[in-house]
């Protein structure tokens, strides 16, 4: 009786957790701009959450520098299950102009399945809002998939995509030790 109410409200109250992995803060300002009166993402229930445990959508910006990569992955793994990962700007998707630098471990999709990628070197707030609304749809799908899997027996629902498709991230540098160039 509550099941579809919960599924509906999963899309209606997405909480964001913002991870800045070495970004030039261009995308960060745009993300915060989305919450300002002019664009007002709170109309759709968006709210910045303080800790990954409270988050539904993880928003990653910045080219995933070598120091911040292990921390970003650990924070993402601490987000409870029906979660979406949204990357803002082109840095997390490809490392932008910093590609090839020894300290940039760019495409996030190498380590984690990225659900929505908002392109643009500082994408417009409207673009970010579209991306986030898109993410809420995906959240709902994930919840439905999770319910189906639960119905036909899988103890903990489908293995979250993040674990399935991620290629063995062998070159993820264990935190702390230097990346041999």
């Amino acid at each position: 009786m509550f099941k579809n109410l919960i599924t509906e409200s999963t899309a209606k109250s997405p909480w964001l957790f913002h991870i800045n992995s070495g970004s030039c803060n261009g995308c960060d300002i745009e993300l915060v701009a989305v919450l300002t009166p002019r664009y007002d993402a709170e109309r759709f229930g968006f709210k910045l959450a303080g800790s990954p445990r409270h988050a539904d959508i993880v928003v990653v910006s910045g080219p995933l520098t070598q120091q911040s990569l292990p921390r970003t992955l650990r924070a993402i793994s601490q987000v409870p299950e029906p979660r979406c990962i949204v990357t803002i700007g082109s840095c997390p998707q490809s490392g932008n102009v910093f590609k090839g630098s020894y300290s940039v471990m760019a495409p996030l999709s190498k380590y984690v399945h990225v659900d929505v990628a908002v392109a643009g070197c500082t994408p417009k707030p409207e673009a970010i809002m579209d991306g986030l609304v898109q993410a809420t749809e995906i959240l709902k799908e994930k919840r439905k998939a999770w319910l189906e899997a639960k119905k036909n027996g899988l103890k903990d629902g489908p293995k979250a995509e993040t674990e399935q498709e991620v290629p063995a991230a062998e070159d993820v540098p264990a935190s702390g030790e230097e990346v041999q160039q």
Binding site: V116, V118, G120, P123, K124, A127, G131, Q134
Partner: peptide
């Protein structure tokens, strides 16, 4: 056109 959202691989 600023609407550049990549869902699948080829969108962007």
């Amino acid at each position: 056109d600023y609407h550049m959202i990549g869902l699948k691989e080829g969108d962007l």
